[in-house]
């Protein structure tokens, strides 16, 4: 029989200030997004006494051409033409319709399992806005890396500066819910280039050497080779690190070619 572990209460603050104060008062309380990672975890490992859900707060629901709230669902992201292509493609690649209707951008960034949307956000140069649980009264800006796996930050929204040409692709064993092999996103502005890699067993990360090769006009094939060399990937039951590098090389080459050909 399944364990029935559940929090004693789910608190639903009405404002950012109230949410920050609750989280400061209850250090063991867990922030809840859509629950697609948290609830199965609670069942396996036991639930916290309190969870905090931001559904009644306005700020984390905002979505625009340069901003995505933490509570925006992946389904909403796929349907909004204003957001960069890589974000829409990454969101559409996650699970089936029922997962996307619940899973949030905040949960994708913080849980990074495997963080497909987080990879796309890295490629468009996004940062997070929110509160540090140790300093609940002050707004804070976080790098995405600071948010990955963090339990002491409340993420309210993600922002990116400029409209970027971007694209995302991933290799997975099965389209909806099968283990991911690797995910890749790239982004380009007039003067920046970003290539981000993610997948099981690795935190989403950028590959600096490949990015500078791209910026200096190297061919898509050369940039892709450099990305494969720089990618931090691991062996697991789904794929070897060698296979993952080969996948990174193929996906990066395809994405750069697509963007450069204006597709």
């Amino acid at each position: 029989m399944l364990s029935r572990a559940a929090p004693r209460r789910v608190l639903r603050p009405r404002s950012v200030e109230e949410a920050a104060a609750v989280l400061a008062d209850l250090p063991a309380a867990e922030v809840l997004g859509g629950g697609t990672v948290a609830l199965p975890d609670w069942r396996r490992r036991g639930a916290p006494e309190f969870a905090v859900h931001l559904g009644a707060v306005v700020e984390p629901r905002r979505l625009g051409s340069r901003e995505c709230g933490a509570l925006v669902t992946l389904d909403e992201l796929t349907r909004d033409a204003r957001v960069p292509t890589a974000l829409r493609q990454a969101a559409a690649s996650v699970g089936g319709p029922a997962v996307r209707a619940m899973a949030t951008v905040g949960g994708n960034v913080v849980a990074v399992r495997p963080g497909c949307v987080a990879v796309a956000l890295l490629a468009v140069g996004a940062v997070g806005e929110g509160r540090d649980r140790g300093a609940p009264g002050e707004s804070a800006t976080f790098s995405l890396d600071d948010l990955f796996d963090s339990t002491d930050r409340l993420l309210l929204s993600t922002h990116w500066q400029s409209t970027t040409e971007s694209a995302f692709a991933k290799l997975a064993v099965r389209s909806a819910g099968g283990p991911n092999v690797v995910s890749v996103a790239i982004g380009r502005t007039a003067d920046t280039r970003a290539i981000a890699i993610g997948g099981p067993g690795t935190r989403p990360h950028r590959v600096a050497a490949a990015e500078s090769d791209w910026g200096e006009g190297a061919s898509a094939a050369d940039v892709a080779r450099a990305a494969a060399v720089g990618a931090l990937v691991a062996d697991d039951v789904t794929a070897t690190a060698r296979y993952r590098r080969a996948a990174v090389e193929t996906l990066v080459r395809r994405l750069i070619t697509t963007i450069e050909e204006g597709g």
Partner: peptide, 13 residues
Amino acid sequence: GRPVLSCSTPAVV
């Protein structure tokens, strides 16, 4: 009107 996974969301929200 949207499908959701009832095992993965608390009822109270």
